[in-house]
Amino acid sequence: MSASPHISNSNSKGSAPLLRLEHISLSFKGVKAVTDISFDVAEGAITALIGPNGAGKSSLLNVINGVYQAQHGSITFDGEVRRHMHPHHAAVRGIARTFQNIALFKGMSVLDNVLTGRNLKRRSSWLEQALRIGRAPGEDDAQRRHAEKVIEFLHIQPWRNSVVGKLPYGLQKRVELARALAAEPRLLLLDEPMAGMNAEEKQEMSSFIADVNREFGTTVVLIEHDIGVVMQLADHVIVLDYGKKIGDGTPDDVRNNPDVIAAYLGTRH
């Protein structure tokens, strides 16, 4: 419970939080990954989860969109309180994400990958699509138009028809973001979107994220190790260490938090 006093810090933008985690604890076969984590994510904000490797950041994202089910705690998304999220329900409610180790559909083209991101926007049945009757043709055009917009937004038009598995790493990261954006999410979870990139690619990716946030109003929660990028991009920073929350606030708050400094410099251990 020690971390809860910070809980309302993030309501800086004044609206009700889009996402609220309360007392989330998760363990695997007795090994604790995350212990009693609570925080709020304000609508329209960019929130960064930072912390050393193994701090439980990815696990927390997995809890938010239901890949893992926490043993304790609850998740409130857009006013709906749930004990567990389920991946499908999360997608339906408008939570999209990217993964630390790219999780694209490697055998498919860039365009097809982006189109899969729009699968929830379909109304026509598979039979209509197979026979190309009814709602299918018009819908195909609409989906394609939207996918092309996303592809253009992220500057990946030249690779539209390339098989994703054969693209370089940095591009794959961008395609994965495109697939997530194609779903027009309200909340975008990004797991180390800039890992393994050089400075220039990082700069490019940060501006994409900032653009998404500004132009579409998408709320973003991202995990990132590069503190420079975090301080530049995030409105709100949450610091995890050994599965516990040790800091929560604006970038400046966090920068001056002695616990955080200790965790990062290693004096505490």
Binding site: V67, A91, A103, M108, D112, T116, N119, L131
Partner: peptide, 30 residues
């Protein structure tokens, strides 16, 4: 018909499940 089908949404969903089912679930493919 099968050729149409694999080029449609369902065909893409099949390949998505084949290539990585966790990611498929996360983007809302049932």
């Amino acid at each position: 018909l099968a050729r149409n089908l694999v080029k449609s949404e369902l065909g893409r969903n099949w390949m998505a499940v084949r290539d990585m089912d966790t990611a498929a679930a996360v983007i809302g493919i049932p």
